[in-house]
Design a protein around this nucleic acid. Structure first.
Lengths: 191, 191
DNA sequence: CAAAGTGATGACAGGTTCTGTCATCACAGT
DNA sequence: ACTGTGATGACAGAACCTGTCATCACTTTG
């Protein structure tokens, strides 16, 4: 495993987050990152596909958590309940690492390129949850709808959590948002 | 207005879509595009922010259509009904230009970079609809939830429409998906 | 214990994307 | 005609990303 200085990948991710936060994403070159990490530019691209990907280290972990939680939901739970449980588990993890999550969000939300990457990662999470729902026996339009809608609610709840530092309970905001959505969807005049 | 050969922007967009479809997005350089359009590389970047943006010409039109339709919804219509009407209007326009929409989608969905751009454009549409809802008097968690959920349903409906060439009625698929979502959200064992 | 093997890193070249800057050209208004 | 305006051309250059080969630390094998 570890030869030379250990944990090159981790050092690169750490240096990148620091520099992006200190001097901005666009002002930071890959050379800056590798210089701080004590490596060469070429090595950066051996660990990360591009300059953005270095900030999305944890997405695979999130995907695992979501799919596992969906798979482990009680057999009589509805698709939306399974999705809700998964997203609450993720929200709880965000809550535990609130400082890191907020720092990272500040960097990501400041640059369109990074927001783009974040959105495709979220879409990937939705796809993974839909797949897990199908494995649980939910048919396909319902599975995709539950997963995509769940992610949509998570996005809204997360934004509210970020905006309001006095509301520190992300899982609570998520549950409230889900309830609110049910209201929004049922109070309709037509059809 | 038009000096030199007219409609440089349009020629560039046309040449880009053709080349991306013919030989792939990554294999096409900006030089290829400008050569076919009879312009220089530098001019491409005067009309489009980057190599991806040239495919997202119509997003502003879509945003106008959505916000206008939300604003024009009857005063007694619910937020979700206003969003539903807006998305149905967009779906109808997609339906009218089905061939072009499908061609463009083939190109976009083949490359992660382009899908990223598409997702941030969709997020922008959701944001614009939320803003239009707020202008109509809908409070903020509900406005964002209705807009984001509407886009989520549209994504699912669009994917179903693309996958199944024998189901040519996108507005119909959209309405069916919205009904299905209400079912998914109300059939829950817990809470 | 030496030889060969493995995997991560360094070094270098090169193409592509995108930006800054200034010159040039077609046309409009006076 | 004279001057202004706006789009385009020409050129330089930084940064991103990739391909390729050499090198080094360490492991395995005989």
């Amino acid at each position: 495993m570890g030869r030379w200085e250990p944990n090159a990948r981790g050092r690169l991710a750490q240096a990148a987050l620091e520099l992006y936060a200190e001097q901005g994403y666009e002002q930071t070159t890959v050379g800056d990152i590798t210089a701080r990490a004590g490596l060469t530019e070429r090595t950066f691209y051996r660990h990360f596909a591009d300059k953005r990907e270095v900030l999305f280290f944890g997405t695979e972990m999130a995907k695992d958590l979501l799919t596992r939680t969906v798979a482990d939901a009680p057999a009589d739970a509805s698709a939306m309940d399974a999705v809700g449980a998964a997203l609450e588990a993720l929200a709880a993890e965000f809550q535990e690492n609130a400082d890191r999550v907020r720092t990272r969000n500040t960097v990501v939300s400041a640059h369109a390129e990074l927001r783009e990457r974040e959105l495709i990662k979220l879409a990937g999470l939705a796809g993974a949850m839909a797949e897990a729902l199908r494995a649980r026996g939910t048919a396909d339009p319902a599975a995709s709808l539950a997963a995509e809608t769940g992610i949509a609610v998570f996005k809204v709840a997360f934004a509210r959590w970020i905006d309001d530092p006095g509301r520190p309970d992300l899982p609570g905001v998520l549950r409230a948002s889900t309830r609110e959505l049910r209201t929004v969807l049922t109070e309709h005049a037509s059809a």
